[in-house]
């Protein structure tokens, strides 16, 4: 953006006669654009021509890209996706709060609080070291197996707990890296004013640390949105499970493709936004 405005400016200055350098750069730009266009077109053509030539293409097209099945199942999939969004919506704040608490546990210095610190370390080590799906199985099947009365045997509760346990461990580590990234001189300045350690953390370190790790945490929450689908293994009929139901009903895999498109419609903009935030932050630092 700055470049174009700069160019406009210089064009105005040179009163319509471009300099040698501008002529050269315009030529280089045109050439690069031409090459990029040709390259994209030929690769796309190759895919569209070559893939259908594969011996199994017709079968794949029938079972994965079936327009009729797609049209009939897509609304149902969208509806089921609301369940994913809901599970995400109540998990995300719980994860953020738990992650912050665990990060603070790991950062305690007082000897009396040493058990907290140990707990924080064990927590992050254990839950970052386990596959999400395994935690969901163990908690989702294990806890209701205790024979709890309704509603305490709900897979929603225990599935959510499993997600919170795993993801808060990652969030805690990210927040902790944010805390570590705050320069010692900020703590010195706070201490020199007579602020207590708690106030220094609360008013000086944490606000800056959390701001620094927003993009990194956004990436975690994008991953969470995808992993909500894993809860389908213990019961909730969310989009992945709904797609499975349709697959059996229609004897066709197209619903999975539909589900994939729905995920991408949400995760790609979110990822782009996280990248944008991350880049903005990197630029601000330099």
């Amino acid at each position: 953006m700055e470049e174009t405005s700069l160019q406009k400016d210089s064009v105005e200055h040179s009163a319509a006669t471009p300099t040698r350098r501008e002529v050269y750069e315009a030529e280089v730009r045109r050439r690069s654009n031409r090459i990029a266009l040709i390259s994209v077109v030929s690769v796309t053509l190759a895919i569209f021509v070559l893939v259908p030539l594969a011996p199994g293409w017709e079968a794949v097209q029938r079972s994965f890209f079936n327009g009729r099945v797609f049209a009939e199942t897509f609304p149902g999939l969208l509806e089921a996706f609301l369940m994913n969004v809901m599970i995400f919506a109540w998990s995300a704040p719980l994860i953020a709060i738990t992650g912050l608490v665990i990060a603070l546990c790991r950062d305690t210095r007082a000897p009396a609080l040493f058990p907290l610190r140990l707990f924080g370390i064990a927590y992050t080590d254990i839950f970052r070291g386990l596959p999400v799906v395994l935690v969901i199985y163990i908690i989702g099947f294990g806890v209701p197996g205790l024979g709890l009365p309704r509603p305490w045997n709900s897979p929603y509760i225990w599935g959510t707990l499993a997600l919170v346990l795993v993801y808060s461990a990652y969030v805690a580590e990210v927040i902790r890296s944010g805390i570590d990234s705050i320069h010692q001189s900020q703590r010195s300045a706070a201490a020199s004013l007579g602020l207590s350690d708690q106030d220094t953390m609360r008013y000086v370190v944490l606000p800056q640390a959390i701001r620094n790790v927003v993009p990194a945490n956004m990436n975690l929450f994008i991953a969470l949105q995808k992993d909500v689908a894993l809860l389908s293994f213990i019961g909730p009929v969310e989009i992945f499970r709904q797609a499975g139901v349709y697959k059996s009903l229609y004897a066709n895999f197209t619903p999975y493709v539909g589900a994939a498109l729905i995920f991408l419609a949400l995760t790609i903009p979110a990822t782009r936004y996280a990248d944008y935030l991350m880049n903005k932050q990197n630029r601000a630092r330099t």
Binding site: A190, L193, G194, L195, S196, D199, Y203
Partner: peptide, 8 residues
């Protein structure tokens, strides 16, 4: 400027 007088 006000943080420390407020908290301390």
């Amino acid at each position: 400027v006000m943080l420390a007088p407020r908290r301390v």
